Simulated assay, not measured.
Amino acid sequence: MQKNIRPKEIIRQRNRRLKAVTLFILLASLAYFAYWWYLNRDWVTTDDAFVGGHLIKLKAQTDGTVVEILAENTQAVKRGQVLVRLDGTKAQIDLEQAQAELGETVRNIVTLNAEVETLRQRIAAKKATMALIKHDLDRFVAAQREGAVADQKVENARDRLMALRATIAEIRAEKNGLQAQVLGGAVETHPAVEKAKSRVRRAFLEYQRRNVRAPVSGVVAKRQAQVGDSIKAGASLLVIVPLDDLWIDANFLETKIADIRPGQSAEIRVDAYGDELLYHGRVQGINPGTGSSFALLPTDNSSGNFIHIAERVPVRIGLDAEELKQNPLQPGLSTLTRINISESGDALYSSSVNSDGDAYRTQIYQHELDGVEQLIDRIIVQNQG
């Protein structure tokens, strides 16, 4: 017997199933939204965030030709390690010239002192001669009264006495001029000698800086120097990246920045590791201006048509040092960063950035002039006679 088909019953069953599925989807969506809202209500998130770090550009400090490269990209280097050697021929010639100029200057000052002493002795000799002539003139004048000496002889003695006085005045002026040049002080403290000393120090420094050293420890990147390159002071050689001092530069929309404060906790997921690895950090500071304010060509909204664009404010987030040590990062990696704004945090424009690290100072240049003072003293002694 054939079963009767009831279209209305089929339609009712289908509608019931559709309503059940729709209700299930709606309840699932509401549950997911509630779950998402519960997890994210106290967080602000941005994917415009990147790993930041120090990119220390190593530049040549003197002119020269590259003769040796001792570090390559991806190699770790230590602070003070020689990375590039420059040809030292020109620097050595300049140093030898500066030493010769110092020796010549010292000899010139010694010569001036000797000339001053010579003029002093000449003055003494002229004074002795003048005393003798004056004594004779006194006798001639006494004898002239008795008619024993001719008037011409007395006049000649007086003329000789006047000539000697003029000569002494001339020699004394010359002596004063030389004394003004030597200033009556020690040779090694004379201004001309001090100037020559500075040239020696500068040339010595240039000679020492033919060896380019690493100011900090890190990993070499972007090597540009090549053997045989003739470079000038200031030319870029390579970059050193300290991988133990990294942070997150997160750019948040201005609509989300109001509740962000230094000291609040943050969670960072790096795209390179996906969701498997979670880094923790804390807000260290908020940039005192939007990115467009510091752009090379800032926007001028006072001219032409205006289109409102939400600006972004850079926020610096410090990473947990232990997590960074266990899972190293590189500057420039993209991240998904979120900040817990339910925490009170610190004052808005306070900062917990630590500038005591090795990337903020170096001591490798403090001893570049070691030995130069001994060299200068030796040159002065050798040329003082």
Rank of each mutant, 00 (worst) to 15 (best):
M1D: 09
K3I: 03
K3P: 04
N4L: 15
I5R: 08
I11M: 11
I11K: 04
Q13M: 12
Q13Y: 15
T22W: 02
T22M: 00
L27S: 00
F33V: 05
N40P: 09
W43D: 02
T45C: 08
D47K: 11
D47P: 05
G52Y: 05
G53P: 00
I56Y: 06
I56N: 09
I56F: 02
I69K: 08
I69R: 03
T74H: 11
A76C: 08
G80W: 10
V82P: 02
E96Y: 10
R107P: 10
V110T: 12
V110F: 15
V110G: 14
N113S: 13
V116N: 00
K126E: 03
A131V: 05
I133N: 15
D136S: 07
L137P: 08
A142E: 02
Q144E: 14
Q152K: 09
N156Q: 15
D159H: 13
M162H: 15
R165G: 12
R165Y: 08
R172L: 13
K175V: 10
K175T: 06
G177H: 13
L178F: 07
A180T: 13
V182A: 11
A186V: 11
T189I: 12
E194H: 10
R199D: 04
E206C: 09
E206D: 07
Y207N: 05
Q208P: 06
R209F: 05
P215V: 01
G218H: 02
Q224F: 12
I231N: 00
G234P: 04
V239H: 03
V239I: 04
L243Q: 12
D245R: 09
L246M: 08
D249K: 12
D249M: 15
F252Q: 05
L253G: 15
T255A: 09
I257M: 14
G263S: 05
S265Q: 11
A272M: 09
A272E: 10
L277P: 07
G289E: 00
G291W: 09
S292Q: 13
P298I: 06
H308S: 08
V313P: 07
V315I: 02
E323L: 06
Q326K: 13
Q326W: 06
N327E: 06
L336V: 06
I339T: 03
E343W: 00
D346P: 03
S352D: 06
S352M: 09
V353G: 14
A359S: 06
R361N: 07
H367P: 01
L369Y: 01
D370R: 04
I376T: 01
I376K: 02
R378D: 06
R378C: 02
I380T: 00
I380G: 04
V381Y: 15
N383K: 01
